[in-house]
Nucleic acid binder design. Structure first.
Lengths: 138, 138
DNA sequence: TCCACGTCTGATTAATTGTTCAGACGTATC
DNA sequence: GATACGTCTGAACAATTAATCAGACGTGGA
């Protein structure tokens, strides 16, 4: 076996198993995709935003002030957070009069939330369209 | 550290639909659980750690220097990141000699990674490596 | 028209975070 | 024992980030 330190193209890093490194390295998504994915996870990585999203997951469609009351956040914080989520197409708005109603707008994020909830033992989404397709409209 | 999770209106916030607010609010997990979940998501929210975890997802078990070479991070950064992930039971170590071999140690996180990958269009976990036997490295 | 209301925004501030550097630790080899 | 090696760690720094404040905007009602 080769035990010598090998040099890869960019910088000189020593490795133990160059073959494996090359193989795994090749299997990784491109840098920008990783960053994009990390971005999504990061969006879910804030307790405030997470409460916001879980509220929408449960409530379906809610206005800003109700979201603030639900999550115990200031309306300004909610608005800022919602803007971030909106920029990443995680939520969408529909404005009626002077109200703004937000809703979850990303199936993958919904599944991410779901899976995350089961991770902590909670299963808020058990009553969702998971088992039976009986008008799972909330 | 429960703030005022059980009883509403600790502060008087105006709401449009108090019934819905109360219902959604009651359905939310406890504060500490939300924080814990946000913690996990936050762990996946860094490109470096994400590359690390995806490498382990693909490589199975790897030492620190190989992980550094794979993710193009410094070994110090890798070690720091690994410590964080280890503290949250996301990865586990087994030391042989002076080497430290890390592996993914959380099924939920594995699913989270998987789901996230499909979100960006990638499907690393399907292991498409057996379809194309490339000859050149990198 | 004016005012109240819900929402949005920019700027500032404070806190958190990732990276780097330098060195420590334990292990293997000589 | 002494040295080289892989890994780990703490501290310092830079960069990112969330919360708050104050005020703006657009809408609806008087």
């Amino acid at each position: 076996m080769d035990t010598e330190a090998t040099v890869i193209d960019a910088c000189d890093l020593k490795m133990v198993d160059p073959d494996k490194v090359a193989a795994v390295r090749k299997s990784l998504p491109e840098a920008e995709d990783v960053v994009e994915l990390a971005d999504v996870f990061s969006l879910l990585g804030d307790p405030g935003r997470l409460r916001l999203l879980m509220s929408l997951l449960e409530g379906g469609e809610m206005c800003v002030c109700d979201l603030a009351a639900t999550t115990l956040m200031s309306e300004s914080s909610v608005s800022h957070a919602l803007r971030l989520l909106r920029a990443h197409r995680v939520v969408s708005v529909s404005r009626r009069g002077r109200m703004a109603y937000y809703r979850l707008d990303d199936g993958h994020v919904r599944m991410l939330l779901d899976l995350g909830l089961t991770h902590t033992g909670h299963t808020i989404a058990m009553h969702l369209e998971n088992t039976e397709p009986e008008t799972g409209d909330q």
